[in-house]
Design a protein around this nucleic acid. Structure first.
Lengths: 350, 350
DNA sequence: ATGAAAGCGCTAACAG
DNA sequence: CTGTTAGCGCTTTCAT
């Protein structure tokens, strides 16, 4: 047998570097104290004598020692990790790459990091795995859960909320629901969109989007109520959210209906952007021939041509709100849901 | 404060539903077998007798039992979790909400989920925490690490790569580097962009972006070499990547230089979009007065006005490549870096 | 095929 | 202030 070819760490200090210091016990041994003391010292407990702590810290530093979080988590029964579940249900082909969810996720990462938590991300496909939520919660790997989007899982989320407290969901609020949700008043947003379209002279409206998803349904309902009140007809142009299908579906809708409508309420900014591009390709003037209003106010809504009039959701505030509520629930507090007021941002498309 | 002492000897087996079945030991007790057998049964080990397994599975199901992953992880010394680190270095205000990284992250989530791994996301600010990479790796909470973007941490990543194998980085490849990287040939992409601009008649070029970030520097270098070869001047218009600063900086650059240039190579599509919007606001015709080429080919590049000519990086392929390489390294294999060929996508902005 | 028992590495109660 | 010790809940030899 020749030299074992394992790459041992290049010894920086021959005298002390014979075998790596991986555990508290190792460190305790070379420091000449017990593991208890090392643990306390590294945790910054004030009981440890200054000298002892200094010495242990120096040694830890010198040997590149790092606490094994898994062991620590097991013992302390808390992990410092928040689980983020993204159910991909009502449209199985919608990947995590969805722009709105990604933006929300980015802000959630900012907010959680600020509070000292890590994030564990899990994409779930509910129809393939009935047990997705309980499995995530019961894994012991997360202290609490944020769910991004209710998808078509409203009932299951409700059921789980009855027995599991540290959970906050992004989505639509319904009368009398149990789970703690953060989201915009989609119905109101839908109203604002329709009101703008009509105020700008539109008389034949279309709703562009997937009306089977809870949040979108609420946007539709809001818009429809305003249209009805004004005696203005509104048709529905259903689309999927998967990028590849969306583009084709919008194109086909425009082929069939562009001549018969003069105002479009798109369920999301992305949809509105695709729509704008299709309209431009057909030499249809926006907003003169057709007015377009989006929903979300993603950063890029400002950059479309013409700049998009849209219903703003404050995604950042929503993310920070979710984290705040979750931490309060973790602390045992009861919390209400947070329904944010959307705001119409007038630019040039309507 | 006393030790968590939840399970006091409660009601002696009234029915089966009084005290929750939380641990293998609980389940073993009611099944009348040992914890070892339960563990083996639930792990699907073939040694367990069919009947026994069936019974245990039924009981587990019935009581909603779920393995504690943390304990399992500690014992097995593997977690099934891949860490994703996003260093936010060269521009401290760039949040995780960055469009390119978010898109990449989405695909990474898809790829890892497909392979049965969870993702643990960590935003890091290297200048505030020297030890970010070792801390993540040494935590014991992840089996391997993906780093999204080298930021200004090339040296540290190199150093760590010398002693830690399961790590793959998204970024720029440099001659003779040690760490396994996946990314586009940015130099080549820069060349393609400049060639297109010049072929379309541009004679006074500008590079728009932050040339201090490694990847962007390579794009610049590639473009500059082509400009030089054609004896065409190219100025640099430096910008930050934080959305709020970016818009102002681009606007100010356009005020000062728009009259003196006729071709812009934007370091990213987002930058290109902002630029397009600014140009439109100034009644400068694209591509007639100024040609614009972007980089990335984000989905929305198709939706700009005019549709953006850009250098395509196959982000999805990159993400799946990173995961593939990481899993091979976890399996002990040696792997090369993966440098992908970018591709010029001609639309209408140049 | 199953049980008994020894930990994985750390924390915290308890006793000095 | 520090050492001792008993686990956190699970997996895996080693016996039987």
């Amino acid at each position: 047998m020749s030299e074992p070819d394992t790459d041992r760490p290049a010894a920086p200090d021959a005298a002390t570097a014979d075998r790596p210091v991986r555990t508290l016990a190792d460190l305790a041994r070379i420091a000449g104290v017990s593991t208890g003391t090392v643990s306390r010292a590294l945790a910054g407990k004030s009981v440890v004598k200054g000298d002892t702590r200094k010495k242990i810290e120096a040694l830890a530093q010198q040997h590149g020692f790092r606490l094994n979080q898994v062991a620590s988590n097991l013992r302390r029964q808390r992990t410092g990790v928040i689980g983020i579940a993204i159910p991909l249900g009502h449209d199985r082909r919608q990947q995590v790459s969805d722009a709105f969810f990604m933006t929300l996720l980015g802000y959630l990462a900012d907010a959680l990091t600020e509070k000292g938590y890590d994030l564990m991300l899990r994409r779930v496909i509910p129809d393939r795995d009935e047990d997705w939520l309980d499995r995530f919660i019961g894994s012991g790997m997360v202290d609490g859960v944020l769910v991004i989007g209710q998808s078509d899982q409203f009932a299951r989320i409700e059921e789980v909320a009855g027995r599991y407290r540290p959970m906050v969901v992004w989505g639509n609020h319904q009368e009398g629901q149990r789970h703690c949700v953060v989201g915009s008043d989609n119905r109101l947003g839908g109203k604002q969109a329709a009101e703008r379209l009509i105020a700008q002279g539109a008389r034949r409206l279309a709703f562009l989007g997937d009306p089977t998803a809870t949040e979108f349904a609420a946007r539709y309902t809001g818009a429809k109520s305003v249209a009805d009140a004004h005696d203005v007809p509104m048709i529905t142009l259903p689309t999927h959210l998967a990028p590849d299908r969306m583009a084709k579906e919008v194109a086909s809708h425009m082929d069939q209906h562009a001549g018969a409508i003069d105002g479009i309420f798109a369920a999301t900014d992305i949809l509105a952007m695709v729509c704008l591009a299709e309209l431009a390709g057909r030499q249809i003037a926006v907003p003169d021939d057709i007015r377009v209003v989006g929903f979300d106010d993603l950063p890029l809504a400002e950059q479309t041509a013409p700049p998009l009039t849209t219903v703003r959701q404050d995604i950042r505030a929503g993310a920070f709100g979710m984290v705040d509520l979750l931490l309060r629930r973790l602390a045992g507090e009861e919390t209400e849901s947070l329904v944010m007021q959307p705001e119409l941002v007038v630019r040039q498309s309507a």
